[in-house]
Design a protein around this nucleic acid. Structure first.
Length: 289
DNA sequence: GCGCAGGGGGTCG
DNA sequence: CGACCCCCTGCG
């Protein structure tokens, strides 16, 4: 646990705003100097774009280089992915151009599960607020740059937390879901740490769906944004429904478009890259309103 | 400024 | 298909 730095000189597809504001994560915040600071695992990192490259600095549990390579998915060739997607049609060409610097982070599975349960019928400022309060109350304290940060609480840290305590934190009706899911994980009713070894994405999804507060959309977000890293999913929320209808389906009332039709379309067009295609489309549409 | 209505990355029964 | 909790935002 010590202060470390790492300068990434050569890179492609790496834009701070694209990565941290494309909707995959909730614990990265922009600083006045346009760098971003965030907590993941037991690490607090500040990431900054400089004329020499991307500079990572902060307190890191293990070697910062390996930590960054893993978390930021640096071994994956996003240029190749973008080329493939851009060839599909002009819409994809545009969306990929817009989200040029997106990378899908390797986020902790447990944290991703809880975060996206909290995201249900909620807005981003409030989601971030709830998560920060959760961390502040039950996470571990880390100091960096004269500021205090808190890790995301582990399942054991939440073992004795009551539904009422969650309600106090402002979780609303999600309190019981977090409570029950924590119990299920602790008791291994769903053994989340074995999910990575399951090959079939649908099989993992069915396991995740057993957790309280995890429905289709949340399950797909967990599959896509966590270390499970499944790109063959297509989370459908209001924005994705909107952009898919506007671009490809053209119904007067977007709400009348069935999930099934959207999934079929995504499967046909994007195949094994559906998840990442979704992310470019989502980000593009959301940023442009 | 302040009060208030409206809505939000869905899930569940 | 309607209820669900409540913070945030925007408008009056």
């Amino acid at each position: 646990m010590k202060y470390q730095e790492f300068l990434l000189e050569k890179y492609d597809s790496f834009n701070l705003k694209d990565i941290f504001e494309c909707g995959q994560c909730f614990r990265w915040n922009e600083e006045p100097d346009e760098s971003y600071t965030g907590v993941f695992g037991s690490n607090v990192l500040n990431v900054q774009k400089t004329d020499k490259g991307i500079l990572f600095k902060g307190v890191c549990e293990n070697d910062i280089i390996n930590t960054v390579i893993d978390y930021f998915d640096l071994d994956r060739d996003y240029s190749e992915i973008k080329r493939t997607l851009a060839k599909i049609d002009d819409n994809m060409k545009e969306s990929v151009k817009f989200g040029d610097g997106i990378r899908i982070l390797n986020q902790d599975l447990w944290e991703t599960i809880i975060s996206f349960i909290i995201s249900a019928n909620n807005n981003i400022p409030r989601i971030k607020g709830i998560i920060e309060r959760l961390c502040k109350n039950y996470g571990k304290r880390i100091e960096f740059n004269d500021k205090v940060y808190y890790t995301f609480p582990r399942p054991e840290d939440l073992k004795d937390v009551t539904v009422e305590a969650y309600r106090q934190l402002g979780l609303g009706f999600r309190d019981i879901r977090i409570y029950e899911t924590t119990i299920m994980v602790l008791n291994k009713v769903v053994d989340i740490y074995k999910l990575k070894d399951i090959k079939d994405t649908n099989e993992i999804r069915n396991e995740l769906l057993k957790l309280a507060g995890v429905g289709d959309k949340v399950a797909d977000c967990i599959l896509l944004f966590s270390t499970l890293k499944r790109f063959d999913v297509f989370p459908i929320d209001v924005w994705v429904r909107r952009v898919m209808n506007d671009l490809y389906i053209h119904k007067d009332d977007e709400k009348s478009v069935s999930k099934k039709d959207i999934l079929k379309l995504a499967e046909d067009k994007f195949g094994k890259l559906s998840g990442i295609a979704q992310q470019y489309l989502f980000y593009w549409r959301r940023e442009l309103g």
